[in-house]
Nucleic acid binder design. Sequence first.
RNA 1: GCGCCUUUAGCUCAAUCGGUAGAGCAUCGGCCUUUUAAGCCGCUGGUUCCGGGUUCGAGUCCCGGAGGGCGCACCA
Length: 507
Amino acid sequence: MSDQEGSLPAGEDLGRREAELRAARRANLAALRERGVDPFKATRFEVTAHASDLHERYADLSAETEPAPNEPFGLGGRLMAVRKMGKNAIWADIWDRSGRMQIYVREDAVGADALAIFDELDLGDIIGVNGSVFRSKKGDLTLRVRSFEVLSKSLVPLPDKWHGLVDVEKRYRQRYVDLIMNEDVRRIFIARSHILAEMRRFCDSKGFLECETPTMLHVAGGAAARPFRTHHNALDVPLDLRIATELNLKRLVVGGLERVYEIGRIFRNEGIDTTHNPEFTMLELYAAYWSVHEMMDFNEELFAHLVRHVLGGDDVVYGERKISFARPFKRIGYFEAMKTYGGLERTDLLDPAGAQSALGSLGLPASQTHGQALDKIFERVVEPNLIDPTFVSDYPVVISPLAKRKDGDPEIVDRYELFGANFELANAFTELNDPDDQRARFEAQIHERKKGNDEIPPPDWDFVNALEYGMPPTAGIGIGVDRLVMLLTNNQSIREVLLFPLQRPIE
RNA sequence: GCGCCUUUAGCUCAAUCGGUAGAGCAUCGGCCUUUUAAGCCGCUGGUUCCGGGUUCGAGUCCCGGAGGGCGCACCA
């Protein structure tokens, strides 16, 4: 590639202004090269501190104690602001992952040639600086630059240094620019990474094995959802992207791994809104010899731990609300909740016709199935009341095809869901391990499927076969990681916690 | 899929009733050795998302389309 104006990627349609701005940077690149500095030749830089390290370490350094301790540091970062003071001194801000550091470049410290090079830099260039810190008269901790290196050149103009990048579409399509400009966005994704790491650490500490099961399957099962279809050329077979990790993880429990989990990407071929993205991340975890009661304790401990770890206390601020995750969480039975919040009776709800009429009296449209009707009623009547974290337990079997029936009450399963801030945070149940019951439920689903419900997956007979070898009593849980991150980072849209949310292609 | 909102300079935003499209930042040229949205002086910068229509005249009004956001529906 030459650094001539016009050597832009084919098809890129630049306005005249942007072309000028880019050309100016190319000219500055050429000028640097003429001085013997090639920004793209650098292969490494010795980073010995991040900005936040220095801010912490020198929190007590005052402007009066200058000269500062003569300890040199090397910082790498992006040049984000430049304030030139005459011909011989430049103040500037560089940003690294941890935050901002002001730097001070003086001719009498770096020499005339180096200052001239610095003078040629553009906002957005990546530099490495060496020097020691002092506190400026205005109180800002500053690195007095003794030497610096140009580590990379930024050839496109950055957004407004004050307003940053605001346009939501551009933020998602060019997330790298968003991350450069918006510190709060950077913090969300750093927090997300910490949440994921802490979830793993927590699960590992309880004796769970992280397992990786295939994302491409011949039969995508374990949930009700339309899959994405793909194709393997060499085998010439159609494949589905998984819609859950459930069945494979339970195969591992059959295999004797006892405690397993996967933090996995799930794909569902459905619409996009503020709480749904076609690919999302779910934690699924299975514990042999546990019932749903042990799982509830585990769940409560995990969430309380994560909230403390990320937010430093028990309270989560979400939108207008403040929600406490102090243990114990509230608990309520499914039918108890329906009765309390909607005055609805168990016997009516368990009757398909009764459920439909309850739906009608709420002013909701008729549902295709009994289960769907119950979901709609619950969503309307109970969910809006679930703000503090609340375990709702004892679900009806009609809406829980993979859960074990409750002993002594065959219409109820050993299942709970955890709600908080008006959305579902976790779904757990005692897993069905009777192969005959499982087979019967798959057979029932075949009829559903034939009726045209294409969200019902075809049966996975090998899974029944696995159960026939014998699976210990097992509890399982699914946690929507993206929604948990939304909650812990106070974001109202899933796209704000996904680095690259799916967008329609341009043109 | 339906409804509402939105799209103007590289970025962030203006533009009265339909009457010559402006500003700040950035860029470019100057001045300034403790500034921090640095400051001061000067220059430059437009396919008003796209395509039609109405009109003497359209960023503005009408129709169609595209992208995005939100809500509803669908969906955990």
